[in-house]
Design a protein around this nucleic acid. Sequence first.
DNA 1: TACCTTTGTAAGTGAATACTCACAAACATT
DNA 2: AATGTTTGTGAGTATTCACTTACAAAGGTA
Lengths: 196, 196
Amino acid sequence: MDISERQLEIIEAAGRILTSSGVSGLTIKNLAAEMKFSESAIYRHFKSKEEIIIAMLNYLAQTMDTRLTEILATELSVEEKFKELFRNQFSFFKKNPHFVVAVFSDGLMEASKAINETILKIMEVKVKHVHAVLAEGQKKGVFTKSISTAELVHITMGAFRLHMYKWRVANFSFDIKKSGDSMIQSVLTLIRAKSK
Amino acid sequence: MDISERQLEIIEAAGRILTSSGVSGLTIKNLAAEMKFSESAIYRHFKSKEEIIIAMLNYLAQTMDTRLTEILATELSVEEKFKELFRNQFSFFKKNPHFVVAVFSDGLMEASKAINETILKIMEVKVKHVHAVLAEGQKKGVFTKSISTAELVHITMGAFRLHMYKWRVANFSFDIKKSGDSMIQSVLTLIRAKSK
DNA sequence: TACCTTTGTAAGTGAATACTCACAAACATT
DNA sequence: AATGTTTGTGAGTATTCACTTACAAAGGTA
């Protein structure tokens, strides 16, 4: 599952294309041009376009899981963990906007079953951590118990995804860290346990 | 802006293809086969593929606005209006799942600027009505004022869209009306004003 | 009957797609 | 120096795509 230097360069080039031209712009021809390569040279490093995309998505899933696991292991308060879980994502996507295109798109999802499953796997990684924090918060009486943990996760993830969608439609033009923080803050206000 | 009988048949055929094969399956060849036509016959009724898609989306925007406006005009309580706003959508999408593919996809959004704008227009129609009900509810003290109306709209729409996304990924296999109702119910629990 | 409009078809166009293959240069290992 | 491996290229392939064109049948209208 290791990737070579050249493979990483290609994955990064694919990322730049996704950011600038979307899924439909990600062709072998464009990718070769971005690499200043011939088209056939790409196939020295990956045996298919699908493999490139999956390598890219796997890289994301892996690093994301690591980063989020670290956050949950800290001594932060539940609320701070919750916020940090999203802050971390906003920072990452700000640096790597192409992943927003890749994950929150379905142009890719239709492309192949394997790609589809990799994207769902990424979502599950995120959900797993959010669920853990929300459940902990409910147990400690920090978050409301008026609805189930799964429902809290759904609402939280929905707000997050919609925010990323808006950012993408706006062509990454607004500050995702700032606006994201304020969005998460309002979710937090809503899900906090009602004082007795 | 009127459409002929044949045009409507083609739009419906396009819908069936979207439901079964997704955006990438919606080709002129497949559309002609579904119509039991030659490919060139399609071009007797629409001058481009883009025109077909836009006609389809416009039809959705139009009927949706009508239906949602009717709900807001009723004498129902704010909470009932809110629920009805979504129930109505769930019923409609259950009957016309292809619109879920069309609207909540970006394969189409990337396809052309005109299509992109039509899809955003549909979202705005929905947001407009949800915003109105939420603002009314806040004013009457039914919904919480701890966050702004816009933030409430964002969270509500996010939960709705994510629910539709899950339905689609699950290949329309679960009962969207039943599960949708329960999802909306939990959103409602969350946004209700805290009792003093 | 003569003509026009509508609605269909068969055959093809050019452009784009992912991918292949025979070959060569550069480099590493012996 | 001889040999093998890695990494590149140029010229192709087959397929798919949206769309066009020349033509014909059917139906209404003069």
